[in-house]
């Protein structure tokens, strides 16, 4: 199973990578929405963790485009934007779940395990 980590913060990409590395056969990383769209097209990840506030192309636009390219992708939004309207918008666009920053490794693992369960049941 492939994971793509999308966040403009290197520290957050590293933290997610360290927490989830053992669960995936391949992990790729993108630091903005455009890189994420390009990488999703090339790599077809099963699972994506997606930040929303990023330079160039933001996470909302990236979700829209990735869902158009590969609707089977499970996207977990990981964002500091903690208002309900943003969460609802991301879910409406096709994201599977929403995890608010700051997050613990336990919260991240738990959210990803739910997605992996769905992938394994396919």
């Amino acid at each position: 199973m492939k994971l793509m980590i999308v966040d403009d913060s290197l520290i957050i990409r590293n933290k997610i990578n360290r927490t989830l590395l053992s669960r995936f056969s391949k992990v790729c990383r993108a630091e903005n929405g455009q890189q994420a769209i390009d990488m999703a097209t090339a790599e077809r990840p099963n699972v994506v963790t997606m930040d929303l506030t990023m330079p160039e192309v933001d996470g909302v636009e990236a979700i829209e485009k990735i869902m158009a390219i590969a609707p089977e992708t499970h996207i977990l939004v990981i964002s500091a934007l903690a208002d309900k309207a943003t969460a609802i918008k991301a879910l409406t666009l096709g994201a599977y779940g929403f995890l608010c920053k700051p997050f613990t490794e336990r919260e991240l693992s738990s959210a990803i395990e739910r997605i992996i369960d769905i992938e394994l049941c396919k």
């Binding site: 913060s9 957050i12 990023m54 500091a80 903690a82 208002d83 309207a85 920053k101």
Partner: peptide, 26 residues
């Protein structure tokens, strides 16, 4: 990277109380 991420997290979390019209920069 870290100090920017902390500022972003605090400002983004403020939208829980202040709503989505509280726009924050990168």
């Amino acid at each position: 990277d870290l100090v920017g991420e902390i500022a972003n997290t605090l400002a983004g979390n403020a939208r829980r109380e202040l709503g989505a019209d509280f726009h924050i920069s990168i």
